[in-house]
Design a protein around this nucleic acid. Structure first.
Lengths: 178, 178
DNA sequence: CAATAAATGTAGCAAGTGCTACAAAAATCT
DNA sequence: AGATTTTTGTAGCACTTGCTACATTTATTG
């Protein structure tokens, strides 16, 4: 991929993180990238092509940011791991990604294969991340990681609709102090 | 509320369940309700007013459908309750509501107070529903219900992006057979 | 029955949508 | 250098968006 395209994608990703993905249209995106709608179509063929490239770009960014978050070492307990992730997703730095994440989910729910693919990529990255940080002695790490990620996404959803207190209930009910 | 408005809302709710909420526009909604965009604005003042009314209508419908799903009696175990709910949300009958749910979440994540309010209503209804069906002898039923609902929403999200297999991981990891 | 209010149809506006036609400049290749 | 391909600007098209102006019909009320 040419440098120019990558640069455009960076700028557009930033725009999407600030203004949302699902109602992004060509002209504002072009403006954010310092170019014209004409050029976007030229480079990406069609708006769907643009969105597809943008989704892959965003997925890669998310995975990268996640990996930069915490060293690759086992956490003392599931509970600690869970709480660390939740705290991180609530960091201002990640707020844009969380919004975009729910945009992706909504589009995927409406049947968009593109968005499902992007979601799959993000999820895979996240599962790997968790597996590497699971406390030692897990019987089925992959499975546990998937279960924990699903719970995290539940909390993320609740956060999104203004029910941040749900996280606490989950922690107490499913991650008891040992 | 007048009968006419209720009738319109029913028709528009059906349309939204089939075609999505976030990209619904006045003319298609009007067509679905057998009227004109002009009339929708007349009755609801503005599009936001319409969406607000529609959200409340949908929230009520969801709560109603949920209550019709299962008798109001304690389930034998958390696991059974969880599995029953998941199976229900996967029923074709509820597919439209699940799509709309994720639309609501996405809009709420972007900051819409209207959508947050609707989500809150749906969540409250769901928590009540769970509390009434929790196995007997729960120490903190309300808290447990919130925790379970959060997990359900995590699974719902995974279902939406095509990862239905996550439910299994959650069941095994967090609802062990006793 | 007359007067007032509620309800609706027709037409349209200004802004935004994805995308295209056409032509000119800039870079690349032979 | 000449030919050819890549890249870009300007304009615009056909359509959709939320919403409004104006006139007319239909119901309600004194």
């Amino acid at each position: 991929m040419s440098d120019k395209k990558t640069q455009m994608l960076d700028a557009m990703a930033a725009h999407v993180l600030a203004h949302g993905l699902n109602n992004a249209s060509l002209r504002p995106l072009a403006k954010a990238a310092g170019t014209s709608d004409r050029m976007l179509i030229y480079h990406f063929g069609t708006k769907n092509g643009l969105i597809e490239a943008l989704l892959m770009h965003l997925a890669a960014q998310m995975t990268f940011g996640l990996n930069a978050l915490l060293p690759e070492a086992p956490m003392p307990s599931r509970r600690a791991l869970f709480e660390t992730v939740i705290a991180a997703t609530r960091n201002e730095m990640f707020a844009g990604y969380m919004r975009v994440w729910h945009d992706i989910v909504a589009a995927a729910a409406q049947g968009s294969a593109t968005h499902k693919a992007a979601a799959g990529q993000i999820i895979d990255g996240f599962v790997d991340w968790i597996v590497k940080r699971l406390p030692e002695g897990e019987a089925a790490p992959e499975r546990t990681a998937r279960a924990i990620l699903t719970m995290i996404d539940g909390v993320l959803l609740m956060d999104a609709v203004g029910h941040a207190e749900m996280a606490e209930a989950v922690t107490e009910a499913f991650f008891p102090l040992e």
